[in-house]
């Protein structure tokens, strides 16, 4: 019989040291992000998306036409294309959007009602990241204002048509 006690604590010592070392390295190498933190960042991005749509929303007309870089001007200038296939916003609108948004990436969607059906089309078709946020703005236009656009319906010019412009924003 071996009367000398053997300290089999090497496993305990080693495992405790490894645990300590791992936790210390984890803390030192990365920030601990609490759930509230990502909400704060998303809040700023969402406010930016809403503010962007507010700035672009303008019913003002110059020489009888909407500003080309307004939401209204963007919609009425969707012409000579097939909506949902190859329609894209005009260059002035995209330039103004990039001036406001800077280095944010975005996806732009348009929703409208046609014969009691809600249709949608992606005008700027990029794939959002998981932390993307969305903001919407409603635009009301008369049929007469949509003449020459893909949304014009022959018949009564006074008939209103409502659009939802949805801007999905994220940091690349």
């Amino acid at each position: 019989m071996n009367t000398k006690a053997q300290a089999f604590t090497l496993e305990g010592v080693a495992s405790a040291l490894i645990l300590l070392l791992a936790l210390y390295t984890l803390y030192q190498s990365s920030l601990v992000i609490s759930p509230m933190w990502s909400e704060a960042v998303n809040m700023q991005t969402k406010i930016k998306a809403q503010d962007t749509l507010k700035i672009l929303d303008s019913y003002e007309k110059v020489d009888g036409k909407f500003h080309n870089d307004s939401l209204q001007g963007m919609i009425v200038n969707l012409k000579d294309c097939t909506i949902g296939v190859n329609c894209t916003p005009n260059t002035e609108f995209l330039t103004s959007l990039s001036i406001i948004l800077g280095d944010y990436d975005y996806r732009l969607e348009l929703y409208w009602v046609n014969n009691s059906t809600i249709n949608s089309a992606a005008l700027v078709d990029k794939k959002p990241s998981p932390n993307a946020v969305a903001a919407s703005r409603y635009v009301l236009l008369n049929n007469s204002e949509l003449r020459n656009s893909v949304f014009y319906r022959g018949g009564e010019d006074w008939k209103p048509m409502i659009f939802e412009v949805r801007l999905i924003l994220w940091r690349p």
Binding site: A5, Q6, F8, T9, E11, G12, V13, S15, A16, L19
Partner: peptide, 12 residues
Amino acid sequence: LSLDMLMGLSIF
């Protein structure tokens, strides 16, 4: 004495 267990437990 279960020194092994005591020491390991105390370190943990």
